[in-house]
Each structure stands twice: as structure tokens, then as C-alpha cells.
Amino acid sequence: MGSAYTKRYTEEFERDAIALVDSSGKTVTAVARELGINSEPLRGRYRKAEVDRGEGQPGELTGAEREELRRLRREDREQRQTIEILRKATAFS
């Protein structure tokens, strides 16, 4: 059963942990054990770091690409709302 409390680590700590996995040749589980942290969150962060370095599966989005997609979807939603408002306004003219 999972805990409702999730410990948050600094970005620097996470970067260092990922770098340790890369440089040590050890598994994510072994590094997590050495650092005294849960291996699953580290595994997820390590996987994202691999994708951001271009080492992911074909079609996987990097963090920057995911952020751009979120931004574009937000802009699209705002533009659709503006168009709908203008459409309703012209109906009353």
C-alpha cells in the first residue's frame, strides 16, 4: 500500500542520482538503495532523462516537446474560445 506522503528531492539531487547511474554502471535499483531512496521514482526520472537525451523509443516526446505541445494546445483552446465569442457576437449584430 502506497504512502500518501511523497518525499520531494531537489532537482540537483535528482540530476546527481541520474548521473550516478550513468557513471557507475550500476542499476537504478542499486543506486537507489545506496542513496536510501525508492527505486521507482528514480527509474521514472532516469527514463525521462534518457528520452530527453534522444535515447528513447521512436516517437517518444522529450520534455521540451511535451511542454511545447501543452503550450500549443492551450493556445489552440484559447483561439477556439475567441472564435466562438466572435461568432456569437456577430450573430447579434
Results as ranks from 00 to 15, higher is better:
G2W: 05
S3C: 09
S3T: 11
A4L: 12
Y5F: 13
Y5M: 14
Y5C: 09
T6G: 07
T6R: 12
K7M: 11
K7A: 15
R8S: 10
Y9D: 01
T10A: 02
E11V: 02
E12D: 13
E12Y: 02
E12N: 05
E12R: 03
F13A: 05
F13C: 03
E14H: 02
R15A: 12
D16T: 12
D16E: 15
A17L: 06
A19Q: 09
L20G: 05
L20H: 11
L20S: 09
L20M: 14
V21R: 02
D22Q: 11
S23L: 10
S23K: 06
S23A: 14
G25W: 09
G25R: 06
G25H: 12
K26D: 13
K26W: 11
T27D: 12
T27G: 13
T27F: 12
V28D: 08
V28C: 10
V28M: 06
V28G: 03
V28K: 07
T29H: 14
T29A: 14
A30L: 01
A30R: 05
A30F: 03
A30N: 03
V31R: 00
A32D: 00
R33V: 10
E34N: 07
E34I: 04
L35W: 03
L35D: 08
L35G: 06
G36L: 00
G36C: 07
I37N: 03
I37Y: 05
I37A: 07
N38M: 08
E40S: 08
P41S: 05
P41W: 01
P41M: 05
L42T: 03
L42S: 03
L42C: 01
R43D: 04
R43F: 06
G44M: 09
R45Y: 07
Y46W: 08
Y46E: 00
K48L: 08
V51I: 15
D52T: 07
D52S: 04
D52R: 05
D52H: 06
R53F: 10
R53Y: 01
R53Q: 09
G54V: 04
G54W: 08
E55Q: 04
G56E: 00
G56L: 01
Q57G: 08
P58M: 07
G59C: 02
G59N: 04
G59H: 02
L61M: 06
L61W: 06
T62P: 01
T62H: 03
A64D: 12
E65K: 00
R66Y: 02
R66N: 03
E67C: 00
E67S: 01
E67K: 05
R70H: 04
R70P: 01
R71D: 09
R71I: 11
L72F: 07
R73E: 14
R73H: 12
R74K: 14
R74P: 00
E75S: 08
D76C: 09
D76E: 10
R77E: 13
R77W: 08
R77G: 10
E78I: 11
E78R: 12
E78K: 08
Q79S: 08
Q79H: 13
Q79D: 14
Q79Y: 12
R80C: 11
R80S: 13
Q81N: 14
T82H: 15
I83G: 06
E84R: 14
I85T: 15
L86R: 14
L86A: 15
R87S: 15
R87L: 11
R87D: 15
K88N: 14
T90K: 12
A91T: 13
A91F: 13
S93I: 10
S93A: 14
S93P: 00
